[in-house]
Simulated assay, not measured.
Amino acid sequence: MPFDPHPPRSARQDDRRPIAWWLLGVAGLIWAMVALGGATRLTGSGLSIMEWAPLSGTLPPLSEAEWQRLYDLYRTIPQYELVNRGFGIEGFKRIFWLEWAHRLWGRLIGLAFLLPLVWFWVRGRIPAGLKPRLLLLFALGGLQGAVGWFMVASGFEADRTAVSPYRLVLHLGLALVLYGMVLWTALGLLRPERTGPRRPAGLRRLVHATAGLLVLAMLAGGFVAGLRAGLTYNTFPLMDGRLVPEGYAQLSPFWRNLTANIAAVQFNHRLLATLAGLAALAAAAWGARALPAGPARAALLALGAVVALQYALGVATLLMVVPVWLGTLHQTAAVGVLTAALVALHMLRPPRMPAR
């Protein structure tokens, strides 16, 4: 697996476990960050702060003059003119606080990673071979902050009232990569051994395929969010009475339909989610039949259950025309789906062959 840190067999358990639990805590913070990001996007709050100030931006406005300055800046962008014109400084404060909390949470994640990393490093508690991976994770966290600003800046352009869908998907995708790497590293530290009976190779391949479909469905969901495609075709399973919506291939060249055509983007998200759901249920059924009671079997059953729940949330979000609370819950549960897939993959790793 690409996220496997391969901790050495000689690493002491009392070194591995504290680091693993620290990383699981960081993963939990990233999960909450994704949820905050969903709420920020759905409420249109993400463009309320028009300055990139990693240090001074930690503090909120402390005077009415500063509030007025920031509000005046916000009134220069299209979102204010076309969406929120006249909502006053009190309306501005409501969207400001959510975006400020989102950015503050990102800073807290950085501290929650950096400070324990320095402590473990100075104390000599980090197993050999793990230091480069931890430094990479810290660098990716910093990159995610820069990508976040790169995304937000796209919403200040003259013809936009929201951020670029492409930059939104880049930001979401990097968040999922970072979360997955942190989680996989923690799992490898908690369960470094690969003992026990071999699992069916076909089952492992099915779970790998399921995980791939799930990730593709999540990225397709990013384009649905970026284009606000969930506000149309609010019927299920058909789209305005058709299986494949009219106008699926109306853009030229064809590939533009995959990212810029509302009908095609929503259909692709539905299709990928359905294929991933069927694959997850098949993997759960196979695991229940072929595996003995234990962590691997439980992980596959959990994967099937979580994916089924997420599918139901997606359908409900669509039928209810994307209320903020349900859309946020749907994005939050997507990280739960990724978690279940990674845990299942980790549990199904084949045993290592003994060294000759």
Rank of each mutant, 00 (worst) to 15 (best):
L281T: 07
L189S: 03
L271W: 14
G247S: 10
W286P: 02
F156L: 15
F87N: 14
L345P: 01
L36M: 13
L243F: 15
G287T: 13
W286G: 01
A101L: 15
V26T: 07
F92W: 06
L258H: 08
L130T: 06
A299V: 03
L136H: 00
N234Y: 12
L73H: 15
A175F: 00
G37A: 07
W97V: 03
P2V: 15
F96E: 03
Q68V: 03
V83Q: 08
S252R: 15
A112H: 04
S154L: 06
G46E: 11
P292S: 09
H346C: 02
G173L: 05
L303Y: 00
L281Q: 06
A282D: 10
P165H: 10
Y166R: 10
P8M: 00
G155P: 00
E157N: 11
A175W: 01
N234W: 09
G241L: 10
P8W: 00
A53M: 04
A284I: 04
A201L: 08
W184F: 14
L130D: 08
R133W: 08
M320N: 10
A101E: 03
V207R: 03
W325P: 03
A27K: 09
A11N: 01
F236H: 12
L140P: 15
Q250Y: 09
R204E: 04
L313R: 02
A229E: 06
R198C: 03
F267R: 04
T328V: 11
M320A: 15
G129I: 07
H330N: 08
A11T: 02
T185V: 11
Y179S: 02
V224A: 08
